[in-house]
Design a protein around this nucleic acid. Structure first.
Length: 275
DNA sequence: AGGGGAACCCGTACGC
DNA sequence: TGCGTACGGGTTCCCC
């Protein structure tokens, strides 16, 4: 599932390969993935426009156009941005929902098997309004231990729920929330406001390190995630807890516990060394 | 404000 | 083998 490291990988790759290209036209095969714009309006507003850059905010891939409009992609579970330069794996485009033909002959596709992911077109005003809802970027220099302490102190919700709350911290989903809490040796169900200064420091360092390492590995392809070339990330082999329920903790060798008690989401942790 | 629940979607897993 | 059904997963929205 594309979280921060996966969307960052996609956005960086696109920035390198598509910035400067001009979109010749857009073709919508599955209009139900569109948000904020109709197929007809999308096609009209992007035709003939140049791509300035591609970047990430929260779990969104944002493609800036020279007109000021932004293509905003939220891949959710199975969404992928695939760049078809004739070398994509066979079948990669089977679930293409929107195709952007570029002036150099390549095509950028938004493909999505389950189509819970979305693609929107936003003008600058709408984009600003939309992204105001997101909390701190964990890899930004403003995400300090003091900032995290403030976020944690403000609520008695479970730590894991706070990490995954996009209004509080942006970009962390189920995989990296589980991993960061294991690294910080913190019980996912602990009320956030009970975290000490030392624990907040540990948690900030855990969040930053796991996200940076996952970006270096080009993300986690636990199931569906693929990069713009249709290739997998390699961080799945480094996961300490996610998907490892019943297996031994890498720190203390005791069996990892699985629960759905927090927000109905799969949580895996070590009851012996996370407190 | 925070919590609960439904809706969105379909491949996969499972029961019969 | 086939058919029917339950499930998952992030976000949004609506209601309490």
């Amino acid at each position: 599932m594309p979280e921060l490291p996966e969307t960052e990988t996609i956005a960086r790759d696109l920035d390198r390969s598509v910035a400067g290209a001009t979109i010749r036209r857009a073709t919508v095969k599955r209009p139900d993935v569109l948000r904020e714009v109709s197929a007809r309006t999308l096609a009209k507003r992007v035709a003939g426009t140049k791509v300035l850059r591609s970047w990430r905010r929260a779990k969104l891939i944002v493609i800036d156009l020279v007109t000021g409009d932004r293509i905003v992609v939220q891949p959710r579970f199975t969404g992928a941005l695939l760049l078809d330069d004739g070398k994509l794996p066979k079948d990669a485009l089977r679930y293409s929902t929107v195709r952007f033909d570029l002036d150099d002959g390549r095509a950028l596709h938004y493909a999505d098997v389950r189509r819970l992911g979305t693609l929107a077109l936003m003008d600058p005003t709408r984009f600003t309004e939309y992204t105001m809802r997101f909390g701190a970027e964990p890899l930004d220099h403003t995400f300090t231990r003091q900032h995290l302490s403030g976020v944690l102190a403000a609520t008695a919700q479970p730590l894991k729920k706070v990490l995954m709350d996009q209004r509080k911290i942006a970009g962390i989903g189920n995989i990296y929330a589980n991993e960061a809490l294991w690294r910080a040796r913190l019980d996912p169900s602990r009320p956030a406001s009970t975290a000490t200064t030392a624990e907040a420091k540990r948690l900030r360092e855990a969040i930053v390190s796991v996200l940076e390492e996952a970006i270096a590995a080009r993300g986690t392809s636990f199931r569906d995630y693929r990069d713009v070339k249709g290739e997998r990330g390699s961080f799945a082999e480094k996961l300490a807890v996610y998907g490892r329920a019943g297996e031994p903790c890498h720190r203390c060798s005791r069996r990892l516990i699985a629960t759905h008690a927090i927000d109905g989401r799969a949580t895996t942790f070590c009851a012996h060394c996370q407190h």
